[in-house]
Amino acid sequence: MELDLFIRYGPALLSGFGITVLCWIVGSLGGMGLGFLIACLYQWSGSWGRACLQAYIEAVRGTPFMIQLFILYYGGPSFGLLLSPVQAGIFGFIIYGSPYFAEIFRAGFQAVPTGQFEAARCCGMTEWTIVRRIVLPQMLVSITAPLTNFMIILTKETAILSVVTVPELLFETQTMAAETFTYIEPFLALSLFYWAMVEFTSWLGRRVERHVTRHQNRQTP
């Protein structure tokens, strides 16, 4: 082990880690938000609206993330979309994740029995109140696990951002390896960073799951 390597490249690696976390958090939360919006629109639109949303889902799910990034970053300027690498990374992440999140939320909507909606409608609640107060807390019980799962997948997809020169973790590690001709140590360190993110996500998922299922099977003496 050449520890002085890490002293020399430590700041670059940490900055890469920071960029990775930034793209991951903002991109996946944005994707989750967009996915939720799509699922809500899907729930309340007619057959034409649903066909359009389905087409979007199929188009995004049917293409590799790397190609989407290329189109966004290299193709963007030709239709007036000039993005910095980090902007393209975050924007691309939002788009890439949204159909998967939308499908998870759509399944969540379906898991809530019709009677729950009906009871709320009979009380005169607005559809948005019903989603916020009645449906979302219940669907989280069944979708927290798939949401956590997809967030974990996304942590590792951040590596692909290096192809559009986002100075994230893999990009910095590759630079370090190329300049020093060492490979094992940098990539082991890289794995540790991803592993930390994955562990954090699954810990968070367990916390959320415990919170949203707290009302189940609670017997009072």
Partner: peptide
Amino acid sequence: FQQFNLWPH
């Protein structure tokens, strides 16, 4: 309702 439809949370 027949099935009560209370909100379980």
